[in-house]
Simulated scan of single mutants.
Amino acid sequence: MSPVVAADPARVIATARAWLGTPYHDQASLRGVGCDCLGLARGVWREVVGPEPFPIPPYSRDWGETGPREVLADGARAMMSEIASSDAGPGALVLFRMAPRAIAKHVGILTGPGTFLHAYERLGVIEEPLTPSWRRRIAFAFLFPQP
């Protein structure tokens, strides 16, 4: 099997930035209407790669959720190339572990060496600095594939 070729990071970033200002809405994925962090990633996937390969089942909003499986990472791994978090650069999808010992439940897209874009409750889709607090929470990183 040949290695997956990554999508153009500039295209991923431009597509993600088109979602800026989209209101936060749990489990939604409609640019300009509403999305949560996973919905943002799903929308960028649809615009950069194509149709979503499988439906997303309902999921818990609990960032402190624990369990034996990294459900979000497993799903991303099935469709994307996983890279070391330390190798993640602009255009990479990153998964954040928001509480110690919790599973990774928050998603963002790196837009620069020190910035990322994500959907955050009450704020919607925003781009902000990747502060040390955010950076240390990165648990997994993936590359969007070319269509």
Rank of each mutant, 00 (worst) to 15 (best):
S85T: 15
A88W: 13
S60G: 06
E70M: 03
F54D: 08
P51V: 11
P58I: 01
M79T: 05
D87Q: 15
P51H: 07
R42C: 06
S86R: 14
G89H: 11
A78P: 00
G39N: 01
F54E: 09
G43C: 06
S60V: 10
D26G: 01
G91S: 01
G75A: 14
S85V: 15
E47C: 01
A99N: 12
A73M: 06
A84R: 14
R69M: 00
Y59F: 13
D26M: 02
V49C: 10
P53T: 07
E52L: 15
L38V: 13
A84D: 11
L95M: 12
C35D: 09
G91I: 07
V71W: 09
W63R: 11
I83Q: 08
A28V: 09
A73C: 07
F96N: 05
D36Q: 06
G39V: 05
S86Y: 04
T66A: 14
G39C: 06
G91H: 02
W45Y: 11
R97E: 06
S86K: 10
R77F: 09
E47I: 00
C37I: 11
V48H: 04
R97V: 08
D26K: 12
T66E: 15
G75V: 11
G91V: 08
D26Y: 14
P55N: 06
R46D: 03
A78M: 03
A73K: 01
R61M: 13
G43W: 06
L72H: 00
R61A: 14
A73W: 04
G91M: 07
W63P: 03
S29K: 08
Q27Y: 08
G32T: 08
R97H: 04
E52I: 10
H25W: 10
L95A: 07
S29T: 03
E82M: 14
L30Q: 09
M98W: 09
G89L: 03
W63Y: 12
G75Y: 08
G75E: 10
W63Q: 11
M98L: 13
C35Q: 07
L40H: 02
A73I: 07
S85K: 15
G32Y: 06
R97Y: 04
D74H: 00
R77T: 09
Q27E: 12
V44F: 02
W63T: 13
Y59M: 10
P57V: 08
S29G: 12
P53A: 02
A92Q: 01
P57K: 10
D74T: 00
M80S: 07
W45I: 03
P58C: 03
G75T: 10
L72K: 04
G32E: 13
G50F: 06
W63N: 11
M98F: 05
C37V: 09
Q27K: 10
R69V: 01
R61W: 10
A28P: 05
S60F: 05
R61F: 09
S29H: 07
M80G: 00
P53E: 03
A92M: 01
P57E: 13
H25I: 11
G43M: 03
Y59V: 06
P58R: 14
G39W: 08
A92D: 06
G91Q: 01
H25R: 15
D26H: 15
D87H: 15
A84V: 00
D62T: 12
D62S: 12
D87E: 15
Q27T: 08
R97Q: 07
Y59K: 02
L93I: 09
V33E: 13
L95S: 07
A76R: 00
F96Y: 08
R31M: 11
A28T: 05
E47H: 02
D74R: 00
A28M: 10
E47D: 13
